[in-house]
C-alpha cells in the first residue's frame, strides 16, 4: 500500500471518528456542548479528518517500527501514541498557563478511549484497502 492509500483511509476514518466522538460525548455527557449541533458537526468532521490524516501518515511512515503484527494493533498504537504526545504537551501548557488551560480528568479518560477507537477504525480500513493477505507467502 502506498502513502496515498493510508492518507485516504486516514481521512475517512477521521471523519467517521469525529462523528463517533460527538455521539459518544452526547451519550456520556462528560462535557456539555457549548456550540450548536450544526457548528459542532462541521468542526468535529474537520478536526477528525485532520487527526485521521496525521495518524494515517504516521502509520504509513513509522508503522513498520511498531512491534505488532496486526495492522489494527499498529494503528491503535500510533493513534494512542499521538494522543498521549499531544496530551503531554497540553500538560506543559497547563503548567505554564493554568488559568488558560484546564486539565479535565473525565475528558482525558474519554479522549484516550476515543484515540484507541480512531486507531481501530483506521486499522480496519487499511486492512480492507490492502486486500486479502497472500496465501503461503
Amino acid at each position: 500500500m502506498n502513502l496515498k492509500e493510508y492518507l485516504k483511509s486516514g481521512v475517512i476514518a477521521g471523519v467517521v471518528w469525529g462523528w463517533l466522538s460527538y455521539l459518544t460525548n452526547a451519550v456520556t455527557g462528560v462535557f456539555p456542548f457549548e456550540g450548536s449541533f450544526a457548528q459542532d458537526i462541521v468542526s468535529f468532521s474537520f478536526a477528525g479528518a485532520v487527526f485521521g490524516l496525521g495518524t494515517g501518515a504516521s502509520l504509513a511512515l513509522f508503522g513498520r517500527f511498531i512491534p505488532f503484527r496486526s495492522v489494527v494493533a499498529r494503528a491503535v498504537f500510533a493513534s494512542a501514541f499521538i494522543w498521549i504526545a499531544l496530551r503531554l504537551v497540553g500538560d506543559m501548557l497547563s503548567m505554564m498557563e493554568p488559568e488558560r488551560y484546564h486539565l479535565f480528568t473525565p475528558g482525558t479518560i474519554q479522549g484516550l478511549g476515543l484515540s484507541i477507537v480512531l486507531g481501530a477504525i483506521l486499522g480496519i480500513l487499511v486492512r480492507k484497502a490492502a486486500g486479502p493477505a497472500p496465501v503461503n507467502a
Binding site: D40, S94, H102, G107, Q110
Partner: peptide, 19 residues
C-alpha cells in the same frame, strides 16, 4: 488560536486542555 471557538467543544471531548 475564532479558531479557538470553532474547535472548543472538540478539544474538550477528546480530553485536551482548553479554556
Amino acid at each position: 488560536e475564532g479558531v479557538h471557538d470553532a474547535f472548543h467543544d472538540f478539544r474538550h471531548v477528546i480530553g485536551m486542555p482548553c479554556h
